[in-house]
Amino acid sequence: MIMPLLEVENLTKHFGGLIAVNNVCLQVEEGEIVGIIGPNGAGKTTLFNLITGYLKPDSGRIIFKGEDITGLPPNKIANKGLVRTFQIVRPFRHLPTIANILVALQSNRGRKRIEWIKTPERKAMEMLEDVGLSEMMMEPAENLSHGDLKRLEIARAMALEPELILLDEPFGGLNPIETEYMVKSIQRMHLDGHTMVIVEHKLRALMKLVERVIVIHYGEIIAEGTPEEIGKNKKVIEVYLGKGEGGLDARS
């Protein structure tokens, strides 16, 4: 049996009296592309924060490539090959676009494990070309449009040549053209062999991409399956209908 790339065992997190993540168990196999959906406040971003070391769980374990990474700080986890993007874009505003990528290349992983052809600047330019941002290379990141910044987030994460990428709402705030472009980028990354877990609200775009969907509500997994199965799952429809958002297909 092949060991899963990521294993989350009985992960729980309280904030005061509020249970944000309740005994969550999940597994991600290498090469998979998994989606996580759920109403707002269900605990999806908290789950990401727990997995990537920004929050310490109250109980449970996170195992990545067979190694227990629970409680490690975010930079160590990133250096092991587990990277994430953020829901709200956070570029390094004062730095030019290319320097944003160079920062990632300065990490331990960036310096020791990644092959640069000639210089890190070359490698960074390649990453920018991959997401179509090479013209903005010297532009201070603060001048970029929202769509560009979303692409920069992806480029920055990819610069670390990760094995597992957690994407937090990659389609947030994108118009239909940008969304299509992002879908294609993610498909390309998947074909290149990267394993991905995507949290998203724009269900139509997400369902096109993922092989498996996990549904979270009030910090618990309430359903798991293929996009078709989830679309027909009564519990899931109730959760979304009950919140007054209409059926799953009506979203975005």
Partner: peptide, 24 residues
Amino acid sequence: SKTGIVFVSILDDELGAKACGINV
């Protein structure tokens, strides 16, 4: 230098720098 670039990244977004694997 590259170190200086990392300094500015810490100025701009410490959490983001951590996400890039930087030992802040």
